[in-house]
């Protein structure tokens, strides 16, 4: 699934590891989500949205 995670992360000057730490997931997870190869579960998507203070649909793009 396409998403703006990389941009949002760069805006805050966070590395993948920084974001992983904030989300309590592995760095590989962050990478797989960022590249659009892995779609996070709904709870993790909400966690990401809450961290960036945005609605899920402002971060993830379906279709």
């Amino acid at each position: 699934m396409k998403n703006r995670l990389k941009v949002l992360r760069a805006e805050r000057d966070w590395s993948q590891a920084d974001l992983a730490l904030r989300l309590d997931v592995s760095r590989q997870s962050v990478n797989a989500i960022e590249t659009g190869k892995y779609d996070p579960s709904l709870p993790l998507a909400f966690k990401i949205a809450r961290l960036f203070g945005m609605p899920i649909e402002a971060i993830f793009e379906d279709g």
Partner: peptide, 8 residues
């Protein structure tokens, strides 16, 4: 394992 990606 708390990491869903690793589980998968």
């Amino acid at each position: 394992e708390a990491d869903e990606f690793r589980r998968m």
